[in-house]
Nucleic acid binder design. Structure first.
Length: 487
RNA sequence: GGCGGUAUCGUCUAGGGGACUAGGACACGGCCCUCUCAAGGCUGGAACACGGGUUCGAAUCCCGUUACCGCUACCA
């Protein structure tokens, strides 16, 4: 049998935001398609009108687009397929694999409650399947409402799961489940199967919370006489406490991480490692590299715990990896939002901007870190960090004197370049009797230049600031030191 | 309760009978580099859930126990 072209789908319900677990499911579906060829499709499961919102649908699109997980065909809205879903359900009624059930919802709930009270597990007793055909006809004619139930056959339903290998369910444990509501709308399993058939899905890859839906769905395919897709059930993602990831664990929406300054590539890389391993101790990967290395054999069976610390580390790795020219596209809006500069300003001095990014990105873990450290390079008026001032400007008169000497040593430098600066400042250190400990100049100078205790190397700071601005900063610092001792 | 799934350092994982004194990464500690902070290098502590088998030999195979997770709706 010739292998069909893989067609996979990601099928979220639009009831919240794009959850990191959903994003990871989408990623593995996408990786599979990119690795082996085929199509990655998106289906919005909006049949629960009460909970589905357009806003959530929008959030799913936004999240996937941000991650770069683009779908290959037009989005399918499950709600639009209700009619075809119903036709499929009626096909089963016609071919005898389903039957009408006239049991009232309230009555069913009562029987279920009674069974549970006596510690029995409830299973529909098929009473409506035993109704005489004439009786059924009479009740239908009388306009009695009914649902359609699937008649579960004897035997065992099993499949070869792509991640779990063989999984089997005795059919006796599956009740005759409803496939069509009294109002004619399909139940989840019916809609999924009907749509997956229609979309010609060849591999259903989803969270393993769907494992127990799978035998029911397989039975439906068979009843409909349709070929089975393959199934792959991915493990769940849990929070740090081992419980299912939820709001109280902090950020769980993909959009949250976007706003926290995480790079999409880092997010994808981190998510990929949660439930999959390429082996060979490989960890940091770009998306194309992940496609190259992807192999379903590396898929994990065990639920993974989401560790935000490792995500941050991963982001730092990607920050260093991404060319500054690419990074600029993401950092520029953030810099503008912080009120530091404008895109036009940055565009007017691209070399300087890229050099600045080169300096900042290696010591940042998030985009926010970069923005924070970038302040002194844009603002006219810097703010001074109290701790840094207290530590590096202890003896105020002596520091003022030192900084004045630094200013005088640097001001005449020509050209304005690091080697000359270093020579001048090291000579100054000798003169002040600091010997090899030039840090005694660099540190107070750093505070004067940036207001901070940490920054890129001092000569890089001087270079990026430019002579004029550096001298201005020094003057401001000297003046400040001369003022009230309160800093 | 029933059914199903899972089980290697705190966390993510490598491992698919001998190469295991169980490897890597995050986090944590130490050292080096060094003008600060990162980055980088070196380094320390830290795991095969338990009990039975199978086998000359088991982290790896089988069974049981335990724990955790999921499903158990005219939700998805």
């Amino acid at each position: 049998m010739a292998a069909p072209v893989p067609r996979l789908r990601f099928a979220p319900s639009p009831t919240g935001y794009l959850h990191v677990g959903g994003a990871r499911t989408a990623l593995f579906n996408w990786l599979y398609v990119k690795k082996f060829g085929g199509q990655f499709l998106l289906r919005i499961e909006d049949t629960d009108k009460a909970r589905s919102t357009d806003e959530s649908t929008r959030a799913i699109f936004d999240g996937l687009e941000w991650l770069g997980l683009l779908w290959d065909e037009e989005v399918v809205y499950q709600g639009a397929n209700a009619e075809r879903n119903r036709d499929d359900a009626y096909r089963m009624l016609a071919n005898g694999t389903a039957y009408r059930c006239f049991c009232a919802q309230a009555e069913l709930a009562e029987r279920r409650a009674a069974a549970e009270a006596s510690k029995d597990s409830f299973k529909y007793d098929r009473r409506c399947d035993r109704l005489a055909p004439s009786e059924v006809e009479r009740r239908v004619a009388a306009g009695e409402p009914f649902t359609l139930r699937f008649r579960v056959p004897d035997g065992t339903t099993s499949w070869d799961d792509l991640v779990h290998s063989e999984i089997a369910f005795p059919n006796k444990d599956i009740e005759d489940f409803i496939i069509l509501r009294a109002d004619g709308t399909p139940i989840y399993n019916m809609a999924v199967v009907s749509d997956d058939i229609f979309m010609r899905i060849t591999l259903v890859m989803r969270g393993d919370d769907h494992i127990s839906n799978t035998p029911k769905q397989i039975l439906l395919y068979r009843a409909l006489g349709e070929p089975l897709p393959r199934f792959a059930h991915l493990p769940m993602i849990h929070g740090l406490d081992g419980k299912k990831l939820s709001k109280r664990h902090g950020a769980t929406a993909v959009g949250d991480y976007q706003h926290l300054g995480i790079l999409p590539g880092a997010m994808l890389n981190f998510l990929a490692l949660l439930g999959w391993s390429p082996g060979h101790d490989i960890e940091v990967m770009t998306l194309p590299r992940m496609v190259e290395l992807f192999d379903p054999a590396g898929l994990q069976k065990k639920a993974a715990i989401f560790d935000p610390k490792k995500l941050e580390w991963m982001n730092g790795q990607h920050l260093s990896l991404v060319p500054s020219a690419d990074l600029a596209a993401i950092v520029t809006p953030a810099l503008e939002a912080a009120g530091f500069t404008t895109a036009a300003d940055l565009a007017s001095r691209p070399d300087w901007y890229l050099a600045l990014l080169d300096l900042l990105k290696v010591r940042a873990r998030t985009i926010d870190d970069i923005v924070r450290q970038a302040g002194p390079f844009f603002l006219d008026e810097i703010s001074y960090d109290a701790d840094a001032v207290a530590k590096q400007w202890k003896d105020r008169p002596a520091t003022a004197e030192l900084l004045a000497a630094v200013r005088d040593a640097l001001a005449p430098l020509s050209p304005w370049e690091p080697a000359a600066m270093e020579e001048a400042l090291r000579m100054l250190a000798e003169r002040f009797g600091f010997g090899e400990k030039a840090g005694r100049i660099f540190q107070p100078l750093r505070v004067a230049l940036t207001g901070l205790g940490v920054s890129p190397g001092i000569f890089d700071v001087l270079l990026m600031l430019g002579r004029e601005r550096a001298i201005l900063r020094l003057d401001a610092a000297i003046a400040r030191l001369g003022d009230s001792p309160g800093a």
